[in-house]
Amino acid sequence: MRPEVQAALENALGQRVKSASPMRGGDVSDAFDVRLAGGDRAFVKTRADLPALAFEREAEGLLWLAEASAVRIPRVLAFSKTEPGFLALEHIEAAAPSTAAEERLGRELAALHRFGAPRFGLSTSNFLATLPQENGERADWASFYRMRRLDPLLERARARGLVSRGLSSRFERLYERLPDLVGPAEAPARLHGDLWGGNWLADRAGVPYLIDPAVYAGHREIDLAMMRLFGGFGRRVFAAYEEAYPLSPGASERVELYQLYPLLAHAVMFGSGYIGQIESALSAYV
Rank of each mutant, 00 (worst) to 15 (best):
V237S: 01
R114K: 14
M269T: 03
G271R: 05
M269N: 00
K18S: 15
G250C: 06
V182E: 09
D27I: 15
Y285S: 12
M269V: 08
L257S: 02
P184Y: 11
S69W: 08
A54H: 05
T130Q: 07
R220I: 02
P249M: 06
L131M: 08
S143L: 08
H219W: 08
G276Y: 12
R57C: 09
Q15P: 13
V76H: 07
A88E: 11
D151F: 12
F115M: 06
T99F: 08
E242K: 02
G206Y: 11
L210M: 05
E56V: 02
A88M: 01
R41P: 11
R114G: 08
G193A: 00
S248L: 14
R57L: 10
E90V: 09
A239T: 09
L257C: 03
A94S: 14
S283F: 00
H113K: 00
A8K: 14
A281K: 03
D151I: 04
F79R: 05
V76Y: 05
L112M: 03
R254C: 11
P132D: 00
A100T: 10
L153W: 12
T124D: 10
L224V: 06
R2F: 14
L210Q: 03
A88T: 02
V76M: 06
R173A: 09
P179L: 04
G14P: 15
L195C: 07
F270M: 04
G276K: 13
L201H: 00
G121R: 10
L195S: 04
G218P: 02
W141S: 12
E56W: 13
E56G: 14
V34H: 09
A8Y: 13
N11V: 15
V255N: 07
L87V: 01
E176V: 11
Y145R: 06
R204K: 15
K45T: 13
F171S: 09
W196R: 09
I278K: 03
A159C: 13
D33V: 05
W141Q: 05
F127Y: 14
M227E: 10
A68C: 03
L264A: 06
P3F: 13
N126L: 12
D212A: 06
A281S: 02
